[in-house]
């Protein structure tokens, strides 16, 4: 994940020190992808090495404050101005691999494999939905609350897509079973 560009983009909104950056990142993403502070400082020192940020001295309380450089601002513009690359081949999907192997394994109860996954994914979906209807995501007023609410929506749509795919797999297998063409019992 592009922690580098995300932190750089946050810095462009105003100079900050490490802890502030971590807090602001997690406010917008609800700590879905927690950052440890060591990771933040490692990233900052790489950004500094690459000339994208400069350490602008002390904030009066001993925090080292960072700000973006001209090159850093160009990097942020380039990030927002281009799509997130879709890897080819796509990242390994354990569930797709598991089902692909299960379907060709005579001793595996594929329906069970599908159902246990559907239940697990439904639980995750229920949890995302619970977070959506409670707390600060329910009535987003500040932009960072709306950001967190939209991150939750992304997780909801992802889980939903997985369940729809499982339903689809099950329907395809059932059709195959009734036409008698399948390896599935």
């Amino acid at each position: 994940m592009s922690v580098k560009q995300a932190l750089l983009a946050l810095l462009e909104q105003g100079p900050k020190y490490g802890y502030q950056l971590r807090t602001e990142f997690e406010e917008r993403t609800g700590s879905t992808w927690p950052l440890n502070i060591g990771q933040v400082y490692t990233t900052l020192s790489r950004l500094e090495r690459d000339g994208l940020v400069v350490a602008g001295g002390d904030d009066g309380e001993g925090h080292v404050v960072y700000r973006t450089t001209e090159a850093g601002r160009a990097e942020v513009d380039a990030w927002f101005g281009s799509p997130v690359p879709r890897d080819q081949p796509p990242p390994r999907d354990e569930l797709a691999i598991k089902l692909a192997i299960a379907i060709s394994s005579p001793d595996v109860d594929v329906e069970y494999v599908i159902q246990q996954q559907r239940t697990a994914t439904m639980r995750a979906l229920q949890e995302h939905t619970r977070l959506k209807r409670s707390g600060r995501a329910a009535r987003p007023e500040a932009p960072e609350d709306l950001a967190w609410s939209l991150v939750l929506d992304a997780l909801v749509f992802e889980a939903e897509a997985e369940i729809r795919w499982l339903d689809h797999c099950e329907a395809r297998l059932a059709r195959l079973a009734t036409t008698g063409g399948g390896t599935h019992s």
Binding site: S31, T32, T119, R123, L131
Partner: peptide
């Protein structure tokens, strides 16, 4: 009835969406 999903704790329950 083949299964039931309860809104129980999941690995995501620790997310800090609430302030």
């Amino acid at each position: 009835v083949v299964d039931e999903a309860d809104a129980g704790l999941t690995g995501l329950a620790g997310m800090t969406g609430a302030r």
